[in-house]
Design a protein around this nucleic acid. Structure first.
Lengths: 172, 172
DNA sequence: CCACCTAATTGCAATTTGCAACTAGTTGCG
DNA sequence: CGCAACTAGTTGCAAATTGCAATTAGGTGG
């Protein structure tokens, strides 16, 4: 698969790659939710992606070099989706997007705590996170998928999210 | 107009607002090209936007509060489109998007020089640019549109772009 | 007064999206 | 073995969106 290349502008080309309603959502779930299998991405999606759309986006992202597809040794039909280096380098962009959305759009408290921490952590935290992601997606994608390789940064973000969600539940 | 609100995640909401092929392109042209009228946006577009798409996007961006539409006093049919504060705060996001695109996609030399300077300038330059944009779009949108209020940062970016483009022409 | 400029709108074909059902095969458990 | 549940998708179809070309309705300037 190839992009259209309406112009050589970096903004335009990035929008041609990621400028649809689902591509960045899929990358976000792989990156922050560590969803590494089709079913995880499908069933645990906040936004309720349809299976055909998910399949099409995964295929497209693989062909664009943003994710890789690897056979899961524990199940001959299972595939492990992992981020590539270009996708990992989206961390600063995703952090900036999250910071803008949190400030200007009607976000919910639980789903925006990670964006808040990511913004507060700044480039130093982003670099740590990117190094964690390299370990879980490039150095050892199988270990990253089955939980034997973890990310300290992601653990902190996830715990903060679960804390806020629990707090919200108690308030109900 | 309202967004769909599939979920309260900041990434998702931002993609619901800007996650299509044209919205950010239009904002980019207003912001970096200072295209403030319909015809300028239509005819001087690198990517060749169609008039119906441009009209629909302008209407949508106005209703989402990212741009304003003001009657041009020099021509009763002309409208001046200006950025609002939320759109001006997209500068860091656009800079980060441009930096990623420049690094990972087949950009052209002329159209990526601004992204390079914006990345090199960092948050300090972004703040200067945002203050310039406030002068040209919020404090005095008419002056900003007719050229009597200008932006030093934008002048530098534009000159660098024209230099590179001239250099490329000479090499042909 | 007429050509050109202004911001769109309209008609229509092609593409994309979204939903629901379905496929084809694998695995775990009794 | 036998069967339910799980795996990654595919298929069919209606609805919405996009993109192109032509057109509209009025305004301006010589």
């Amino acid at each position: 698969m190839d992009i259209e290349r309406r112009s050589g502008c970096p903004i335009n080309l990035t929008m041609e790659v990621l400028g649809d309603r689902w591509s960045l959502i899929v990358i976000r779930d792989i990156m922050f939710g560590n969803r590494r299998h089709f079913r995880e991405l499908l069933n645990r999606s906040e936004e309720g992606i349809a299976s055909n759309i998910l399949a099409a986006r995964l295929k497209r992202l693989v062909s664009l070099g943003l994710i890789t597809r690897l056979d899961d040794p524990t199940h001959s039909q299972k595939a492990i989706y992992s981020l590539t280096e270009p996708a990992i380098q989206l961390v600063p962009m995703i952090a900036t997007i999250g910071a803008w959305g949190r400030r200007h759009l009607p976000v919910s408290e639980d789903l925006s705590i990670r964006a808040e921490l990511l913004e507060k952590g700044g480039p130093v935290l982003w670099e740590d996170f990117m190094n964690d992601l390299r370990n879980m997606h490039i150095a050892d994608p199988i270990g990253g998928a089955n939980g034997s390789v973890t990310s300290p940064v992601l653990t902190d973000l996830t715990n903060a999210f679960l804390d806020v969600r629990a707090k919200m539940k108690r308030r109900e």
